[in-house]
Design a binder for these strands. Structure first.
Length: 148
DNA sequence: GCCAACGTTGGC
DNA sequence: GCCAACGTTGGC
């Protein structure tokens, strides 16, 4: 799950009450589908820092809620408000995530790209712009071996 | 700041 | 339903 650290970083999540926050503001249908249809409490996720000096995987968090409608989409005062989202038929979804730990060092995108084992990851596909995407168990385990 | 890649919008 | 124009993402 990607976030720009200048907007919301792993450290921000760590300092949130209970280390927990709603992963809100996702406004892409494919990413929405992953949240709404695939995520369950107990799932783990990498926190990826994008659009920054060192893009890469910064830490690990846990999904701690079922998917539910994104409240920011229904709040006219919120910058992520979507007037086309209907409370009776919500268009956008969130899950709550809880900080688990930071990696010993950020695993840079450039390092991930060097690994043939990870070539199939959507994250590494050319032109990928998804902010939420799946990681296979094999990819997950392999990435953790890159942590020194 | 540049620009490639992609998603969305809207005219037809 | 097509597709050009536009906006956004995100690495570099």
């Amino acid at each position: 799950m990607k976030s720009e650290p200048s907007v919301y970083s792993l450290q921000d999540l760590a300092q949130a009450p209970g280390g927990t926050a709603a992963w809100d503001g996702v406004r892409n249908y494919q990413a929405r589908n992953f949240i709404r249809d695939q995520m369950q409490p107990g799932d783990l996720a990498f926190f990826y820092h994008s659009s920054c000096a060192q893009p890469g995987i910064a830490g690990i968090m846990e999904v701690v809620s079922q998917p539910y409608p994104d409240p920011t989409a229904l709040d006219p005062a919120d910058e992520h408000y979507d007037p086309k989202s209907d409370p009776a038929n919500p268009r956008w979804y969130v899950v709550d995530v809880r900080y688990q730990r930071a990696l010993s060092e950020v695993i840079p995108l450039a390092r991930l790209k060097q690994c043939p084992e990870l070539a199939q990851m959507p994250l590494l596909r050319r032109g990928n712009r998804l902010s939420v995407m799946p990681v296979t168990p094999e990819q997950w385990r392999y990435i953790l071996t890159l942590e020194c």
